[in-house]
Design a protein around this nucleic acid. Structure first.
Lengths: 201, 201
DNA sequence: TAAAGAAGTGAACCATGATTCACACCTATT
DNA sequence: AATAGGTGTGAATCATGGTTCACTTCTTTA
């Protein structure tokens, strides 16, 4: 035997992996998953198509990682709003969570659309379910807590949580797919927030 | 000139068109849009693949028609529940509409999933937007009426309507994509209905 | 520096499935 | 019967885009 990957080597590999992922996310942010092809990713990264396969087993794996990556931060933000450092009422936390989600989705534009609503291959869809479940999980926990301390009326936390995800997806993100420009952010966010609060409280 | 299509000829053509459409819908009901290919449609109808193109300009057109066809009845049912013959309170009508939608979606299974949630080609997605808009339109009208007579609190009918569509899509249909069997229909419908009513009233 | 294990290359390959097309057959008009 | 549209055929063609592979180049170790 005469070759063993060393720290430097592994670092380079990791960096390349990272670079590919970053480029991939940026492609999705620009043109959605529809725009993400192996050859384009290779071209924009400045390598050969075959090389991509040294870093990702298949396109499905690539998409899954892109999805995870692009998603993490979003879910974290909502998580943070739902379970903040300083104590706050469930009602307030729910408001904040919905607001954060909405603001980021509107800001995110194409990326938000790609993550939530864009038609994609089943393999990616699978990943999306995980993503939606992550949101639903956060909401569910929050609602459960609210119900327990009687701040919210009795309800099925899991159904209510899924419903919230559906509301946000449909009202905020779907319009992006239609290319509807969001003229006034608050004009959209306010009614959504109110709707959600009425529904839960 | 020496040939003009006659009534009998046009009838035959229409019948064939109808037969193709019916077969196509049944394929979608079984295996979703994913399962709908020109060659399979031809096979199941008992004609050659090329013949399909005598009746549909392209697959996109075919899908659009399938979508429209499968959709019509569904939207009609909800429309009927929302604006019944006998007068009823907006609240009651909303309840009925949501119930009808939910029941039919659960019954419909794969078809409901295909119409609302299955990942499809952008061209079909376009058609789906029309479909969702049809539902949203019904709800919007109903909510508007309820707000006007002060049966519902003040709110943005268009946002609330879209939200309802999102709720129904996410809570009812998305699980079908996961293959979650619906064990108890009412166990799912009841909380949804309550959620929607709380949100609107 | 020779050997061995990665990484990089990119054109060829493959899979899928829509679409076409040259031709045969049918149907209405004169 | 001759002619002009239609309809039906299905193998061949196209398009797209993922995936492979034989080969080269780089890195590390002995």
């Amino acid at each position: 035997m005469s070759y063993r990957p060393t720290a430097k080597t592994r670092a380079r590999r990791k960096a390349q992996h990272e670079s590919l992922l970053k480029t991939a996310v940026s492609i999705v942010a620009r043109d959605g998953f529809q725009g993400l092809t192996i050859s384009r990713l290779a071209r924009e990264t400045g390598i050969a198509t075959g090389t991509v396969y040294k870093y990702f087993d298949s396109k499905a794996h690539l998409c899954a990682e892109v999805f995870r990556r692009a998603t993490e931060r979003e879910v974290e933000m909502v998580q943070a709003a739902s379970f903040p450092e300083q104590p706050a009422s469930c009602r307030q936390r729910l408001t904040d969570a919905v607001t954060i989600f909405a603001e980021r989705a509107i800001l995110g534009g194409q990326l938000a659309y790609a993550l939530i609503a864009e038609p994609v291959a089943p393999a990616v869809e699978q990943e999306r379910l995980i993503y939606r479940k992550a949101y639903a999980g956060i909401f569910e926990q929050l609602i459960e807590e609210g119900v327990k301390i009687n701040e919210f009326p009795d309800q099925s936390p899991s159904v209510s949580a899924a419903a919230l995800v559906g509301i946000l997806a449909e009202v905020l993100v779907a319009p992006l797919g239609r290319g509807d420009a969001v003229t006034d952010q608050n004009q959209l966010i306010d009614p959504i927030r109110e709707f959600c609060l009425r529904a839960i409280t």
